[in-house]
Every structure is written in C-alpha cells, then in structure tokens.
C-alpha cells in the first residue's frame, strides 16, 4: 500500500517535470495592451476602490454626526 502511494507521488512528480508549460494566471490578462484587457484593468481598479470609499463615507458621516453633537453639548 505504501509502495503504491509512493509510486503515485513519483509518477505525478515525473509528469509535472515532463510538462513544464507556462500557464496564464488569467485568460483576460494575456495581452495587456489589448483594449479589452485595459477595460478589465480599469474596471477592477475602480471596483477595488469602492469598498474603501463606501466605508470611508459611512465612517466619516458617523464621526461627523457624533463630533457635531459633542460640540453642541460643549457650547
């Protein structure tokens, strides 16, 4: 049983070494200068910025309301 497992692992290692093809991580990024790839890049960057914007605005608003109430109490 142990010999079989070892043999399988050896076989996988040999096959991995025999077929050293380079693989693209993402098919859309294959040709970065193509318009569609630039579209994807800008879209990803835009959408990545949105959670920070949303949480920033909500957090900022909460901070603003509490600060204003605090200042009102002071005066």
């Amino acid at each position: 049983m142990t010999r079989h497992i070892a043999l399988c692992i050896l076989l996988i290692c040999v096959v991995t070494l025999i077929l050293p093809h380079t693989l693209e991580a993402c098919p859309a990024c294959k040709n970065l200068n193509e318009p569609i790839a630039r579209g994807f890049n800008w879209s990803v960057l835009f959408m990545m910025s949105m959670p920070f914007t949303v949480f920033g605005v909500i957090g900022g608003s909460v901070f603003y309301y509490y600060r204003r109430a605090h200042n009102k109490v002071k005066t």
């Binding site: 318009p35 569609i36 630039r38 579209g39 994807f40 879209s43 990803v44 835009f46 959408m47």
Partner: peptide
C-alpha cells in the same frame, strides 16, 4: 465597472 469593460474593450 461592466460599462468600463465594454466601453474600453
């Protein structure tokens, strides 16, 4: 984001 992909593509 979808619009940007189609517009720039």
């Amino acid at each position: 984001g979808a619009f940007l992909v189609f517009r720039m593509g």
